[in-house]
Design a protein around this nucleic acid. Structure first.
Lengths: 346, 346
DNA sequence: TTGAAAGCGCTAACAA
DNA sequence: TTGTTAGCGCTTTCAA
């Protein structure tokens, strides 16, 4: 039973060779004879030898591992980004260690410690909502471990080895609202989340600027700030339908609120999109399952993960143009026009 | 800049103490004077000392890490299970290393190797669809690393240190179909995935047995085997509505197909649930966003993750009753009755 | 209460 | 082409 794992030393003893020869043979160095390599490989196979990465990493001073820290590993957005990260990291020969903060600063701090202790060669992080103090990132920065913030970035946190990748929420909203205007909507309501949150602030600004750019007035009565979910979306829609100035479209800053709004509109007998166009943001799975399907903005989650890793690679030791200031990347989201906003044939 | 990470040796030199004393002080051993501990801790803080887990793990022969291998880290199900795993593992003081196979045996094999090389103390795995050969798990078993299969298990793969946790799909389906019958449905169609896949086989059997138990005949014309998604659900529903024996309910083996079926029914002017009751399986997010909301079966994903870790712990060294045969756990799913099947007031 | 010394498994100079 | 030796950073006996 308890087959102790075979080590290089075991192989060396069995074959009457030194550990260095074994090590070199396994690494396929070219200063080992083919004959020896063959013997080593065969025995390794037979004993189902597994190299001990811990030892190798310790010796090399390189763990070959990247750390990822996200608020959640559930939901739609983060798993997809992490997927992108895992994909790109694996291409570059890195393993990935994934942690979640559960939107809790304490957890976040603990996880950063964990990642640092695990000697990761770089860290990709999307900060928790509740994070106000960023001291734990100082440790990362001061030890010169490359750090990439994605999606939820820490404004003003600069450093030699700090980059960021984010989404151009402003552009996404701008495009979306422009599309609604082109469809003939003139009284476009906006359901937004708390405006101190970046993504909502930016989407909101995109909304305002798109209206202005197309010569439409901004009607503050058509703007509603709330915690965005299905219930609040429904409630806000109901409220607006009682106003004197009823909207002919709703742009909700997330898809859940859009669904809620759509359901309320339909419940009042309005046709979507003819009487009321609806649009959301994020391209959640369910937006293509509702009736009608919901126009939204795709965030290219995977692309974000990929970009983040590439940014990180630029900062890693051994990169020739490492001197160059690490760049920040802003990704363009993609408008997805679906039934809920399409009044005119395309 | 490049603040080399402080090591115990550094602390020892700076304080004129031996590395062993430092190590003990940091570990809060009680054979170190409080005064010394204080000095050590303060300096450690000042130099923002981070213990090197690689070295500690190597020395101890314990990595304190569990490995998780899932087909995907996206979607609804697996992230939630992984969440449960992470939760419970963290409680027990374990870190978690997460890998995805992307439903590819090769990746799966590579990942198992990676986990073994990383000296994980146990592995939790849900096997890829395409896995036919299970040789890579032999390595795990023979090295006596505890192995827990969850959800997608390998039938007949037994071992001293192998357990499994799965869902009682049969029961879930049985309950669900019984519910439909209680609601007055008598011609219940079943949309199922390929029957060589376990979950579908079991759900299908639950369906059949529930009908029989309630004295209903099984009509093979009401059973449709397909790749389950929204499109195929729609198509199957349309087909059935043209049959002579039109169903009055549909139990789809996943939620996507249920949505598709519901949309087709509504498109034909049928009322859901009055004319056609609809039910799915898995409690995907969107099932509570459709109109009407969809009756489904919740799989208790998090619970599955938690159970898996507990099962693993039972097999770890140091467990007193480790001798006891590792158990397999079967979890009870939970019926969620929603609007799409509720004909009678509750 | 502290220190000396060994060694986890591996790699990489340097030597032969 | 192979071996010798040292050491990555840590923990842990054993001795003082």
């Amino acid at each position: 039973m308890a087959n102790r794992r075979a080590s290089i030393t075991d192989l060396a003893k069995a074959l009457n060779l030194s550990t260095s020869t074994i090590s070199r043979a396994l690494a396929d160095h070219n200063d080992v004879s083919e004959a020896t390599k063959k013997r080593v490989r065969e025995l390794a196979e037979e004993l189902s030898y597994q190299p001990n990465q811990l030892a190798a990493a310790l010796r090399r001073g390189r763990s070959n591992t990247l750390g990822v820290l996200v608020p959640h590993i559930t939901g739609n957005f983060f798993p997809q980004v992490v997927n992108g990260i895992a994909l790109e990291a694996s291409k570059a020969g890195f393993n990935v260690m994934i942690c979640q903060s559960n939107e809790d600063v304490k957890q976040e701090r603990k996880n950063i410690d964990l990642l640092m202790n695990s000697q990761v060669e770089g860290i990709l992080v999307s900060v928790s909502n509740t994070t106000q103090d960023f001291g734990h990132f100082d440790a990362v920065r001061s030890q010169d471990v490359p750090l990439v913030f994605f999606d939820r970035i820490v404004e003003g946190f600069r450093g030699n080895n700090v980059s960021a990748v984010m989404l151009d929420d402003y552009q996404g909203a701008y495009q979306l609202v422009s599309h609604l205007i082109e469809q003939g909507c003139t009284r476009i309501a906006h359901f937004t989340g708390p405006l101190h949150i970046n993504i909502h602030k930016n989407r909101h600004q995109g909304y305002r600027d798109a209206l202005t750019a197309h010569g439409l007035e901004i009607d503050e009565d058509l703007i509603s700030v709330m915690e965005l979910n299905q219930k609040t979306g429904t409630a806000a829609m109901k409220r607006m339908l009682k106003q004197s100035n009823v909207p002919d479209a709703v742009f909700a800053s997330n898809d859940l609120a859009a669904v809620g709004a759509m359901q309320a509109a339909k419940a009042q007998g309005l046709r979507v999109p003819q009487d009321m166009a609806i649009a959301g943001f994020s391209n959640e799975v369910f937006t293509s399952l509702t009736e009608p399907t919901i126009t939204t903005v795709d965030q290219g989650c995977e692309t974000m993960g990929i970009s983040a890793v590439r940014l990180l690679q630029k900062m890693l030791n051994g990169n020739p143009d490492r001197q160059a200031q690490p760049r920040n990347v802003v990704l363009r989201p993609k408008l997805l026009v679906r039934e809920s906003s399409l009044r005119k044939p395309e």
